[in-house]
Design a protein around this nucleic acid. Structure first.
Lengths: 349, 349
DNA sequence: CCTGGTTAAGCGAACGTTCGCCTTAATTCA
DNA sequence: TGAATTAAGGCGAACGTTCGCTTAACCAGG
C-alpha cells in the first residue's frame, strides 16, 4: 500500500510550514500569490490528497451518511432501489459526502444497535431512513438521541415531527380514479394492502376521495385487501369477476403493480380483454409495466428527485444544524397512461 | 451531537492510564484481573465506544470496502442487486467492515478519479468491482497501483490475473440445452447478446457446447443477437417463427429473462403455446420469471453466496496481504425448470 | 520617532487512538 | 544477601489534520 504524501512533505517542498499548506488548501490563507503558487505546485507534484482519517478526526465529522433498507423477499424485485441509491450517491458525492450502506436486520433491537454503533464510533454523521411504518422503532430512537436523519416516508398522523420527503400516494391513486371516471367507469374496485400498512392506507385514501369527487357511492365489497403479490391480485380479481352483474366492477385500481399483474392474468383467464372490458391501473410504474400485454397504466414516483432531495436536506441539516424549509415535503406522483385503461366502451346501464 | 466517551475518561474513572484501557480493549494487556474488571466496568458505565477516526488514523486502515455498479437503464430492473448488496453488507459487518457505495460514472476517466480519490484519501482499504467487460479500465488501474480488489466476473481470456468469482454462464446454458435435448428438441435457437458482451459470449458457449454434446449441427441462422430487451426477444422470435418449417426451431434458449419474455409474447401472439409447441428458457431467474404465464424455466445464479465469498476474500486479502486460495473461482448456476419447457410433444420428423 | 494597523506566515495544541519501550515493585533463585 | 526475573502498568510518540493565537516585517500617519 503506497501512502499518499502528507501535508508535511508538501510543506517541506514548498518551503513553508505544514499548517500554512493546510490553510491554502482550505482557502483560509493569507499568503502571497507567489507562496500560494509554490504550494499548489508542490501539491500537484507530490500528488497530495488530504488524508480522510486525519481530517475527520480533527473536524469531528465523517462526511458519511448511513443507509440501510429492508431487502425485498426473494420472489420480488425492488423496482426503485437502483435508481434511488444512485440518486443519493450522486448527490452526496457532489457535496463531498459518501454513503455507508449496512445490512438490514429484522430484529429491531439488533438493528438499533447497528445504528447506534455507526453513530457512536463516529463512522457516520447522520442517516437516511426508509421503510417507515406504524411501529417504526428507529424514529423515536434517533430523535431521542438527537442523531440527525431524514426519512423517505412519514409516520401515521405525523405532524412533521422529523424531516421527511414522501410520495403523496393518495394523490396518485386519485389521479388514476379521475382518469377512469373520465373514461366512463362507474363501478371501480380497489386491490389494497393489509390494514397495517401505512403506505397502503395512504394510497387507498385516494380511492375514496376519487369516488367522492365523482359523486360515486363507495361499496366496501369492492375493496379487497392482501399482501401485495400477484397471487393476491389474481384471487381477488377472480372474486370480483364473480360478483353479480349489477355491482361487478368495470375497473380495478391496484395499490401496486404486482397485484395489477395478477388482476390482468385473472381477467384474461376469464376470457375478458384488459382495457376494453375491464380497466386496470397499478402503482410504482415498475420497469416491466410497459412490457406487459397490454402495457399497464401505472402511477410513477419521482424516485431520483426524492433521493436527491433527501440527501441535500440531510447535508444541509448536518452543516447548518437547522432543518431546511420546508421541513417536510409531499411530492406528487404522475400517472402513466397505457393500454390497460384504453378503449373502454361504457355500456349504457 | 453528543460525543461518546473517550479512552481518557474511561481511564480516569478506572484509575489507570488511558493507554492501559486501550490495551485491555485490544486484548493486549498485562493487567491484573481486578484492574481489568474495573476497566470493563468503567467502559460499560460510560458507554464507551472507540472512535472510528482516531482508530483508523492510527492504524492506517479504514475497514471500509468501496463498491459501485452500473445502474440499470430506467426501463429495466436489476434482479440481483438487492440480494447481492445485502449479502455483501452482512458478510462485511460480521468481520467489522462496512461498504462505502459511490455513484457510477459512464466516463471512464471520471470513474477512475473517484476510485483514486477514495483510495488516496484513505476512505477505503479496497474495492469490490463488477460489470467486468472487455474494455474494463479499472482492472489495470487498480492492479498497477497495487490497490486491493476482488471482482465479480472476469475478463476475457484472463488467466486469473486478479482474484475473482464468476458464474459459469456457459455451464448454465449448457444445462438448459441438456434439458431441452432430453425433452426431445432437436432444432434449438439462441437469443444472444451483442458480440462485445463478454458475459453474453460466455453464456453462448454453453449453447454450442450443448449442441455438440447432443451431436446436433449448429446453424448460425438460429442465433440472433441484440440488446437484451424484451423487444429484441419479440422481434427475433417473430423472425424465427417465420423460418421454413424444416429449420424452424422448436425451442429457444435466451441469454436473459427479458428476451425470454419477449419471445413468449411473440409465440403467444402467433397462436402457439409456450411449452407445448415451443420451449423457452431464460437466464437470471428474475423474481417475475415464476409469475409469467406460463412460468419461465430459467438459469438461477447463487448470488448471495457470491457476495459473501467476494467480501470474505477481499477482507482476507486486506488482512493477510496474500490472496486466499483458490484465487479465482467459477461457480455453477442451477436450472430452475418450469412450465415454459414442459409437455413438449416431439413430432416425428 | 513612536504608534497602530496591515500583511504574511509560524507555532503550539488538540482531535482519539495504538504501539513499543520503560519503570517500578514484587518475587525468585543461587 | 544480592542479582536476575517477572508481572503490572506508565509514558512518550506518532498517525495527519485544523484551529486560533502569536510574531515579524512593513507601512502610513501624527
Amino acid at each position: 500500500m503506497f501512502k499518499s504524501a502528507t501535508l508535511k512533505e508538501v510543506a517541506t517542498k514548498a518551503g513553508v510550514s505544514y499548517q500554512t499548506v493546510s490553510k491554502v488548501i482550505n482557502h483560509k490563507a493569507n499568503v502571497s500569490p507567489e507562496t500560494e503558487k509554490r504550494i499548489w505546485d508542490a501539491i500537484a507534484e507530490l500528488n497530495y490528497t488530504p488524508n480522510y482519517s486525519g481530517r475527520s478526526l480533527r473536524q469531528q465529522r465523517s462526511r458519511t451518511i448511513g443507509y440501510t433498507w429492508e431487502p425485498s423477499p426473494p420472489d420480488q424485485t425492488n423496482p426503485i432501489l437502483d435508481a434511488f441509491l444512485q440518486s443519493m450517491f450522486r448527490t452526496a458525492e457532489e457535496k463531498g459526502y459518501y454513503l455507508l450502506c449496512f445490512p438490514f436486520h429484522a430484529d429491531d433491537a439488533r438493528m438499533l444497535k447497528v445504528y447506534a454503533h455507526l453513530w457512536d464510533t463516529g463512522r457516520v454523521d447522520g442517516f437516511v431512513i426508509s421503510r417507515l411504518n406504524y411501529d417504526e422503532a428507529i424514529v423515536p430512537y434517533l430523535s431521542g438521541r438527537k442523531i440527525p436523519f431524514v426519512g423517505f416516508g412519514r409516520l401515521e398522523d405525523d405532524n412533521c415531527s422529523f424531516p421527511y420527503v414522501d410520495v403523496d400516494g393518495g394523490n396518485g391513486v386519485a389521479q388514476a380514479m379521475d382518469h377512469l371516471v373520465a373514461l366512463g367507469h362507474r363501478k371501480i374496485a380497489a386491490l389494497a394492502w393489509p390494514k397495517d400498512s401505512r403506505v397502503g392506507n395512504n394510497r387507498l385514501e385516494g380511492y375514496f376521495s376519487g369516488l367522492a369527487k365523482a359523486g360515486l357511492q363507495s361499496d366496501l365489497s369492492l375493496v379487497v385487501r392482501g399482501e401485495g403479490t400477484s397471487e393476491v391480485g389474481f384471487d381477488a380479481t377472480n372474486y370480483l369477476l364473480g360478483l353479480p352483474q349489477e355491482i361487478r366492477p368495470t375497473a380495478i385500481v391496484c395499490m401496486n403493480d404486482m397485484m395489477a399483474i395478477g388482476a390482468m392474468q385473472a381477467i384474461q383467464k376469464a376470457g375478458l380483454q384488459v382495457g376494453r372490458d375491464i380497466g386496470v391501473t397499478g402503482f410504482d410504474d415498475t420497469p416491466t409495466a410497459r412490457y406487459l400485454t397490454p402495457p399497464l397504466t401505472s402511477v410513477s414516483q419521482p424516485i431520483p428527485a426524492i433521493g436527491e432531495t433527501l440527501v441535500e436536506r440531510l447535508i444541509e441539516l448536518l452543516e447548518t444544524g437547522t432543518y431546511p424549509e420546508p421541513k417536510c415535503e409531499l411530492v406528487a406522483p404522475r400517472l402513466e397512461v397505457r393500454e390497460s385503461t384504453a378503449s373502454y366502451v361504457p355500456t349504457v346501464g
